[in-house]
């Protein structure tokens, strides 16, 4: 079981590395907020902790975790979208000089 999980981790890290090396410096800030939103997936674990009735402390901690993770997901995706909306190539004053 553990070895399977290690496979998943190593391969995912590898894919992540390959994909992210291709992200231009232009978009490094959106990249950070995007990965931040995506890592809000810990909500999945938080929901289980908040809803499993393992005593009131476990529920309370799970609840706070749900709030934190949801905040990150909602805020993260919204701010990423807001930023990406701002990146435009169109130039109204001069002919756009396309770069590779």
């Amino acid at each position: 079981m553990l070895i399977l999980e290690l496979y998943v981790f190593v391969l995912a890290a590898f894919v992540g590395y390959m994909v992210i090396t291709k992200v231009p410096p232009l978009l490094h800030t959106p990249l950070m907020s995007a990965t931040n939103a995506i890592s809000g997936i810990s909500l999945v674990g938080s929901m289980v902790a908040a809803g499993s009735r393992h005593g009131s402390l476990a529920t309370a901690l799970g609840f706070i975790a749900v709030v934190c993770a949801t905040t990150n997901i909602v805020g993260g995706f919204l701010i990423t979208d807001r930023m990406l909306k701002m990146f435009r190539a169109k130039d109204s004053h001069a002919a756009p000089a396309k770069k590779g």
Binding site: A13, V15, T35
Partner: peptide, 10 residues
């Protein structure tokens, strides 16, 4: 594991 790895790699 996958999302954490993506975030960690980035």
């Amino acid at each position: 594991i996958i999302c954490g790895a993506l975030d960690g790699a980035s």
